[in-house]
């Protein structure tokens, strides 16, 4: 049986990693900080997938972003999705060559559907994640593009149906109202909307504690839960959240989270110095 997923989203902006609250960004640290101070590796061995988004507001530099991607993927042995500001096939190719397994599109889904279609043809539907930023308003202007700055003339249900028709592989559904608040996902608001979607849905925006992951996975027809909050699950937050989810009957993939670090340099150590079981 295919397993549910726990996903971490890293928000990148001009060389730094960011905290976002209702789409207002706050700088936290650079790649060096992420590796050495934040202990990102510990987190990387406790999640099923990583999403890296370039949320730079002005003058995005995809070359720099692809370097950040490369520096992160070298100790992550999970599928990695990357996106934010993909303008053409070349941008997509650069991210794929820098270690991405999937591409995240947002504004292009509305403004450049031919690019979306080209990328689906080239890499396959399963490679394309449609990122959707919305506010809980139940009206025709509740979906936003361009880093949440521009509303489109569709309500959420209509827009999701449109995306499914375009044959994107998955939907990353991100609540702008809940973003960074830690108040939990809008489970009730999304119930009837998510029920109608027939492709995998990743829920994002609002998780503050592991109970939120369990609540959403138990009550909504979704495949994955994500959080982009760098601090709500700091330290042993992710390993513990994963254990609690498994203990509560959530069907996640299993592996020995603690063995990963010991496997580094396995073939450089003297023979028999490491007992694999």
């Amino acid at each position: 049986m295919l397993k549910k997923r726990l996903i971490f989203t890293l928000l990148y902006s001009a060389g730094n990693f960011m905290l976002s609250r209702n789409f207002k960004l706050q700088k936290v640290g650079n790649a060096e900080w992420l590796k050495n101070c934040y202990n990102f590796r510990n987190i990387a061995f406790s999640i099923d997938e990583l999403i890296l988004l370039d949320v730079t507001r002005n003058n995005r530099d995809i070359q720099l972003f692809s370097q950040a991607l490369r520096s992160i993927v070298d100790t992550c042995f999970i599928p990695i999705a990357a996106g934010g500001g993909i303008k053409d096939e070349k941008d997509a190719e650069l991210l794929m060559k820098s270690g991405a397994d999937k591409l995240v599109l947002n504004t292009a889904l509305m403004k450049n559907i031919s690019l979306t279609k080209t990328l689906i043809r080239k890499y396959g539907s399963q490679c394309i994640i449609a990122s959707v930023d919305y506010k809980e308003e139940r009206q025709a202007s509740e979906v936003f593009i361009n880093n949440g700055t521009e509303s489109i003339r569709h309500n959420l249900a209509e827009y999701l149906q449109y995306l499914e028709e375009q044959e994107v592989g998955e939907i990353y559904l991100n609540s702008m109202d809940r973003d960074g608040t830690g108040q939990g996902y809008p489970v009730n608001y999304l119930k009837t909307i998510v029920d109608k979607i027939n492709i995998p849905v990743i829920l994002a925006g609002g998780a503050g504690k592991y109970q939120h992951f369990i609540e959403a996975l138990n009550n909504l027809k979704i495949d994955a839960v994500a959080t982009a909050n760098l601090f709500n699950f700091i330290g042993n937050g992710f390993p513990e959240a994963r254990d609690k989810m498994l203990n509560n009957g959530i069907q996640l993939a299993k592996w020995d989270k603690h063995a990963g670090k010991n496997l580094e340099g396995y073939f450089l150590k003297p023979p028999n110095s490491y007992n694999q079981t």
Binding site: V73, D74, T75, F77, I80, G99, L263, G265, F267
Partner: peptide
């Protein structure tokens, strides 16, 4: 996607 295969081998010290 050979990039990630090589990463894993490098991590293991291969």
């Amino acid at each position: 996607n050979i990039y990630s295969i090589r990463n894993a081998l490098t991590y293991l010290g291969g």
